[in-house]
Amino acid sequence: MTDYPPPNHIQPSPFAQSPPAFPREDHSIHEPAMALETPGEIDNEFIKEKRKKLGWFFWCCVVWFGLNVFVAIFVNFLPIQDPTLEVATDPNLPVNSGPTAAHWLGTDESGRDIFSRILHGSRVSLEIGFGGMLIGFAIGGTLGVYAAYRRGRFDSLLSIFMFTILAFPAIVFLIAFSAVWKPMDLNKIIILLSVASIPAVYRVIRGSTLAAASREFITAAKVQGASDFRIIFKEILPNILPTAISFFMIGVATLIILEGGLAVLGVSVPPPEPSWGNMINEGTTFINSPNSGVGPWLVLFPGIAFFLLLLSINTIGDKLRDFFDVTEGKL
């Protein structure tokens, strides 16, 4: 049954919604190798491991990511405008204004402050990204480790089931579910997205557990009479941790992008709840009704917020994977 998934060289991203996949080990950063010219067997032994560094860019990303988390947690205590305050309740508010001193990033059609809405929106993105992935890992990861360790019928049946779900185009089903499961709210979205992420998490974790469990030291531990519990927690988990961490980060980024997509389609958390996807959805008015006065900044600013958050998450995942990957440093 192990041969059901398509033979990917790339890490699958949760239910196949890009962003991808970091492909087969990417040596380019470390090595002086050249095209069409293979270094001989022996120089691998000579070129000793370069000391691994996370680099300044990684720490910039950590800081930006931490800032987002901070804002998401404490946004209600920050001295910023109420994100739902609109011109209907306060006629003094400017409508569709560009960036001003009072409204740093301008206001939208209803006079709501874009800066405040972006700060509040980071909460939705992070809650969905991390909430969805935590549930996905709690279920998919546990099942994956257990199935790969136990093997047998349980593994076969569960794998068929998971790979079946994995073959479904998730977006179509998400939209369809949103139609019948009204009204949508944040919790429902998190549940839907985490369910959609379970098979992908299962597949990745099961795969790396299988690889780890077939190694000699696991057999050695078994022969020495170590308990299953001990083998799983002391021997297998440390080995799959690098893969798990980087896949978790990729998954978070993927869910954030996907939620934004659903919001742009208008089937995610309903407005007026501020989310970046909703803001972009409202911003698309600048295309559809040019006379509405909505400027492209309503798309641009949440777009930049998306970009910076996703870039920091992707970078953290990518660099951590390189950092933990023992095989990569060899060359």
């Binding site: 992008i257 997509g261 972009i280 970009f307």
Partner: peptide
């Protein structure tokens, strides 16, 4: 570019 959502 990986971090730029298509809808943006």
């Amino acid at each position: 570019l990986l971090s730029v959502p298509t809808y943006v």
